[in-house]
């Protein structure tokens, strides 16, 4: 009953930005020596004169992007989330977010799946950091379909955008009829017992978890939140009120990420009992994808287990 596999988000990234550049002369790609991994190489083949290799020098790369944006270009950044967010953070803050410049930071290798790299390449708090940054739109797509649409939305928007993509092929949540709306969260399953709220490539696994829970009689309402900022406050409150119990699930730290954002929202607008699943104030580590999901409680089975435990704990009160 699990969702089918889609295409890798990074392929969609390479193709979509290339297609945008076909018709928009402002589009340039700045690479931090990772074009083979992020698939910016697709862009290099199509538009070699607008593919700008910045070398292994991310702080400078984000500064150069700011300068190009201030001169009318629309730079897309190609590197891993690890080196797109934390290494050049001060450049992002002062040169891009404060002047609200038109730079599109498309970080690849978000979350735990970084392919033989371990904790140095697993940034557990990129959502927390970027959504706290004034002016920075922060998007975490669920699959390849949503990735393509989010990138096209970003190109149509004038200002800084951060989109985090995962490395490996993800399950496909949406079909071609899907229309990404930056201001909206998406109810992907209706239910009555508990509301599961998720973001990024974790959402398809949460949908599978809801299916597992349905077999044991638990009806889950599932909300996908692709945009962490601006946050769909009304959508989150409505989803929480549907069941009165919320579990957030993210391939990310629970501190400041989706769980933090939902807790802030509900605390202010509609206090609701909730549980945050995700990395519990810890760094990542080396292991296979399956082992990582299991270890950090993010596989469908482990999510289902923890939701069941949370419901049992609430029932005992």
């Amino acid at each position: 009953m699990t969702l089918p596999m889609g295409r890798a988000m990074r392929e969609v990234f390479g193709e979509t930005v290339t297609a945008l550049a076909d018709t928009d002369p402002r589009v340039v790609m700045l690479d931090g020596d990772l074009g083979t991994s992020t698939r910016a190489e697709i862009f290099e083949r199509a538009h070699p004169e607008r593919f700008l290799q910045m070398g292994i020098a991310e702080q400078n790369m984000l500064g150069v992007a700011a300068g190009m944006a201030a001169s009318g270009f629309m730079p897309f950044i190609s590197t891993f989330v690890a080196f797109a967010v934390v290494r050049p953070l001060d450049q992002i803050r002062v040169l891009i977010a404060q002047p609200k410049l038109n730079v599109k930071i498309i970080g690849s290798y978000a979350g735990l799946f970084v392919g033989a790299a371990g904790k140095t390449h697993q940034i557990v708090d990129d959502i927390s950091i970027m959504r706290a940054m004034p002016n920075m739109v922060t998007i975490s797509p669920a699959d390849d379909v949503e990735t393509g649409q989010a990138i096209r939305w970003a190109a149509a928007y004038d200002g800084p955008v951060y989109i985090r993509l995962v490395r490996d092929v993800t399950q496909r949540l949406f079909d071609d009829a899907y229309a990404f709306d930056v201001a909206k969260s998406v109810v992907v399953r209706e239910g009555t017992d508990v509301t599961l709220i998720s973001t990024g490539a974790e959402t398809p696994r949460v949908v599978d978890a809801a299916e597992i829970l349905a077999q044991t009689g638990t009806s889950c309402h599932v909300l996908h939140v692709p945009t962490l900022k601006p946050l769909d406050v009304a959508g989150i409150v409505a989803a929480a009120n549907k069941t009165g119990l919320v579990v957030t699930v993210e391939e990310h730290s629970i501190i400041g990420g989706l769980g933090g954002a939902v807790a802030e929202t509900l605390g202010e607008h509609s206090p609701t009992a909730m549980k945050r699943l995700g990395l519990q104030d810890t760094f990542g580590e080396s292991a296979s994808n399956a082992d990582l999901l299991d270890r950090f409680g993010l596989s469908s089975n482990r999510v289902a287990e923890q939701v069941t435990a949370f419901l049992a704990q609430r029932a005992r009160r």
């Binding site: 033989a116 371990g118 904790k119 390449h121 080396s286 292991a287 296979s288 082992d291």
Partner: peptide, 13 residues
């Protein structure tokens, strides 16, 4: 190397 619980993490730890 790089397997679960290894001392030989993907990058030196």
């Amino acid at each position: 190397f790089d397997q679960a619980d290894t001392r030989l993490q993907g990058h030196p730890d």
